[in-house]
Simulated assay, not measured.
Amino acid sequence: MASTGIPKEPKLYGSSEFIKGNVRWCLWLDTDNARNTVESIPDIKRRIGNVKKFREQSKDSGTKKLAEKPHQFREMREAVRELLLISRVSSERRAYIPMGILDKQCVVADAQVIYDPPTWIFSVVSSRMHMTWVRAVAGRLETRIRYSSSLCYNTFPFPDISAKQKEKLEEHVFAVLDEREKHPEKTMAQLYDPDKMPAGLRQAHHDMDIAIEQCYRAKPFSSDEERLEYLFTLYEAMIAAEKKRG
């Protein structure tokens, strides 16, 4: 969404909207001119005023500073091509955390997002290897998995992936996305219900899981316990290497 000074009305996605298939919209006011345009509408002006008051009354210094820009989101980052949404909270029953590639015009709030990632990244964070790691290190909201970039993504030991492997992984990504599109009537919650997941989607994920694991080693893993042990060994090596550099 290049800055034009004109108010924009993009789709707004949070974890709940993405998983349940609800559609919301927001005003994206990236300049003061855009704010001036919409403040001619009393209801919008009132809402901006309420945000300003809420932020001014916050005990958090960062939130207080944001009161200077009450018409804007906390984060004003925009994608050039597309963005990858990772649901922040997901049922522990799901084999995979629902995530998806969204158009650059979309705005994400209350979810983790990677801006303009290479396509193959989707295969890594959607993989069983990553989910095994997430289940071990992520926080919890009641019993549900609470995904965070600091605990889950930044600590995850990525494998060394060759250019040829990346091309293959991208094929698996598109295969998963194609299987999803075969069920336009289903929400992400329905697609990733462990009892109702379509067979084709389940197989596409399984094939992608194998491709990811082959990036780590040729010998197949026999269990999640073995996967986790292998990942923690890599993590320890990663931390040791960082200490040497530091």
Rank of each mutant, 00 (worst) to 15 (best):
L29A: 01
A241K: 14
A199Y: 01
F174G: 00
D60N: 15
F18C: 02
D110L: 10
W25T: 09
P198D: 04
G5S: 08
V51K: 05
K219H: 09
C106I: 01
A111E: 09
H130G: 02
K64C: 06
H205Q: 10
V108C: 04
L151Y: 08
S222D: 15
L84W: 04
I97G: 00
L84T: 06
I239T: 12
E213A: 09
P159D: 10
Q112D: 13
W25C: 08
R81W: 14
E142D: 15
K196M: 09
P184W: 00
I19C: 01
Y216N: 05
A136F: 13
R245D: 14
D103Q: 11
S61A: 13
C152L: 02
P184E: 01
Y235E: 11
Q72V: 07
G14R: 08
V80Y: 13
N33R: 10
L169V: 05
I6F: 07
H130C: 10
Y147L: 10
F174I: 05
S162G: 13
I161H: 01
T143P: 07
E68G: 06
K243R: 12
P98Q: 01
S3E: 15
G200D: 03
C26R: 03
P70E: 07
E226P: 00
W25P: 02
V107E: 11
H130V: 05
T132L: 03
P7D: 08
P198H: 03
K69T: 12
R77M: 13
T233K: 15
E171G: 14
R81L: 13
W25R: 12
A2I: 12
R46T: 13
Q203V: 07
E229W: 07
C26E: 06
F221P: 03
V89Q: 07
H205N: 14
T155R: 08
E229P: 08
N36K: 11
R144K: 13
Q214T: 09
E181S: 04
V89I: 14
A2K: 10
S149G: 09
S40V: 12
K45E: 12
D60A: 06
C106F: 02
M197Y: 01
A109V: 15
R77T: 12
K104A: 11
P157G: 06
N36F: 07
W120D: 09
M238E: 14
S61Y: 07
K244H: 12
A189V: 00
R55A: 02
I210G: 05
K182R: 09
L177R: 06
K20P: 01
E75F: 14
T119D: 15
M208E: 06
L234T: 04
S61R: 11
S3V: 14
S15F: 05
K164H: 11
G21E: 04
E236D: 14
I48W: 01
I114T: 09
E213S: 10
I161C: 02
K243P: 09
